[in-house]
Each structure stands twice: as structure tokens, then as C-alpha cells.
Computed example of a mutant assay.
Amino acid sequence: MPKPFFIGVDGGATHCLARIRDLDGHLLGEGVGGPANIHSDFPLAKESIRGATKSALAAAGLDEQSLRWAHVGLGLAGAGLKATADRLLSELTGFASVELQTDAYVAWLGAHQGGDGGIAILGTGSCGLAIVNGRRISVAGWGPEVSDEAGGQRMGREALRRTLWAYDGRAEKSGLTDALLTRFNRDPSRIVSFAASASSADYARFAPLIFKYASAQDPLAIKLVSEAAEAAVSIIDRLLAVGAPAVSLIGGLAEPVLSWLPPRLLGVITPPQADPADGALLMARRAFLRIDSVMQRAG
């Protein structure tokens, strides 16, 4: 009989990563897919997960028939909404087992390996999670419409909004507003057209440019980064207040935001022990061990 193996998927608003390991923990293959927020765009997320998994299988030298032996751990943005999560689980068949949690949960599991601690995800969106003495406390992460203040989506959207203010003469122009206007051929109507269909990931792609100009002391860029850092601080402070002994920063903005945080926090911010994809794999492995234990008792 073929040996079981594990697939861990870390899926966020911008992309997803699928990773395959064997029973001994050896890396077999990885694959990357597109956005995987099952709340924002369920069909796209499902296709992204499928594409990333298919690429990982190919890299591992496995075919789709082998999925019957796969124990899968999914950590996905939007999985905190029960109806959406249940829908996805009902459509995922043909695996040995499937575990579904939020992207924040697998980030915590990877970062702290199941021990007490907190994580702050600073990526396209932003959220926090602490698990202390078995109690789970979520912070922020209510979506781009009303939350995600420390994420790249908000930074990019606000940068474009304030570029239009500068174009109107309602705000000071800066190197950042000039650079952004140039990207749209100095035509503000193109910004409006872009915004009409822009995804969270589309807005977040402006974040590296904003950090670049902030490093060059551009006043608007400094304001935008400072606002994101303040939002991150509020998440971290809440995680510490509920008892997290340490907090790990996760996501594409984690490193650039770190230097903008107050010195008082640097002693409690610790590097993650593993990344979210390995957190998803650990979740899948735990499910396998539970199943294996039950089968051994029954046998």
C-alpha cells in the first residue's frame, strides 16, 4: 500500500503556496497559485488552491491519483466564515483527510508549534491571533471594506486617494504622488478606472513603492507607513494584553514594518519557528495521527 503523505496550503488574498512532505518530514515539492481568499472570491480561490496543489504534485513526481493517500491541511483567508468554510469542505473529496482553518491559525501553528503565543499577519490585509492556555483570541481581520488597517491593500488605496487629492490641489504634491500619477500616464481618470475593478492584491502591489519613498523621507509615504505601523501596534498590543508571551510577524509587510515599530515592542517580537505552509502541514499531520490512533485502537 502506498505511504500517506501531507499537503499544506497557505492561502491569502494575493497568492497561495502548497507544500508536500512525506511521513518523515522530507520536502517533496511545492507549488504556487493565485489569490485564495474563499470569502472574497470563492471560485478563484478554489482554482488557485487546485493549481498550486497540482504544481506541487508535479514537483514531487506524484499524480492526482495519489491524492487518496494525502492528508491535507488548508489555512485560508476567509475560512473564519462557517458557511463558506463548510461549502469548501463539501466540495473537497478524494483525499485521505482534510483539515481547514484560517490563514491566521496555520501561521500561529507554524510560528509557535502549538505553544502559547501570538501572530500578527501583515500582508495584503492584516489581522492577529493569540492562543493562550487553549483560548483563541482573534484581533481585526474583518476584511478590506471595514478593517485591514495595517495591510498593503489599505496603503495602496490611500496612496491613490491622496494622489488624487494632490492632483486637485487639496493636498501637497510629493515624490510619491508624482510617481503614482506617472504610472497612470498622468491621467487621473485612469486611476478611477483602475479602482473600479481593482482587487485587494492590485492595491497592495503599490506597497513596495510606498516603503521606498518613505525611506527617502517623502512626507506622504511616511504618513501612510506610519498609519500602517500604528495599526500593527494596536494588534500587537492587544495580543500581549490577552497573555501572549511573544508575537511573531508574518506576511510580506512584516519585515519592512518592523523598523517602524516602537522600541518597546522589539523584545517581545520573535521570529516564527516555521512558516504558515509548514503550520498547515503540522495540522494535517495531527489529523493523520488522530486517525491512525483510532484505527489502531479499533484494530
Rank of each mutant, 00 (worst) to 15 (best):
L160D: 01
V233H: 09
I236G: 03
L249G: 00
A140R: 00
P35H: 02
A79F: 02
Q217W: 09
G33E: 01
A36Q: 06
D24H: 14
L23C: 08
P2W: 03
I191G: 02
P245H: 10
W165V: 05
E145M: 13
D168G: 09
P245L: 09
L181E: 05
A216N: 12
I121R: 01
G114T: 04
R50W: 13
I20A: 00
D275M: 07
R205W: 05
M283A: 14
R186G: 08
L180M: 06
D178E: 15
G11Q: 00
A244D: 12
M283K: 08
A241C: 09
V268N: 06
C127V: 14
G31V: 06
A120W: 00
D275I: 05
K82G: 05
G156A: 10
M283G: 00
S215Y: 04
V233R: 00
A216R: 12
G110E: 06
Q273D: 09
V268L: 01
I236L: 11
P2V: 11
I269K: 03
R290V: 11
I222G: 08
P219H: 08
V247Y: 01
S189W: 11
V225N: 01
A229E: 06
R285Q: 14
P43K: 06
A36C: 12
L176S: 06
G11M: 02
T102Q: 03
V98D: 03
Q217D: 15
K212Q: 13
L122H: 06
L282S: 04
L261W: 07
S215W: 01
I119E: 00
P35V: 02
A77R: 00
H15S: 14
D24S: 13
V132W: 13
G156D: 08
L249A: 02
I269Q: 07
G34Q: 11
G61N: 11
Q273T: 06
A179S: 14
G8R: 04
G118C: 11
G51L: 12
A111D: 12
A96H: 05
D116H: 13
L209G: 07
V294D: 15
W165I: 05
L81P: 04
A232F: 08
S248V: 04
K82A: 11
Y167R: 11
S200T: 10
A214N: 00
G118I: 02
L261F: 10
P245Q: 11
I121W: 00
R21Q: 14
A274D: 15
P144M: 09
V225G: 01
A140K: 04
G8S: 10
A179V: 03
G33S: 08
E149H: 15
A232M: 08
R19Y: 01
A96T: 08
L261A: 12
W165G: 09
A244H: 03
A244K: 02
A18L: 02
L160Y: 03
L265G: 11
A45M: 10
A274I: 05
M1N: 10
A56L: 02
G143N: 05
D178F: 07
V257Y: 04
D278P: 06
T102H: 03
D10C: 09
R170Q: 14
G94R: 07
Q65N: 12
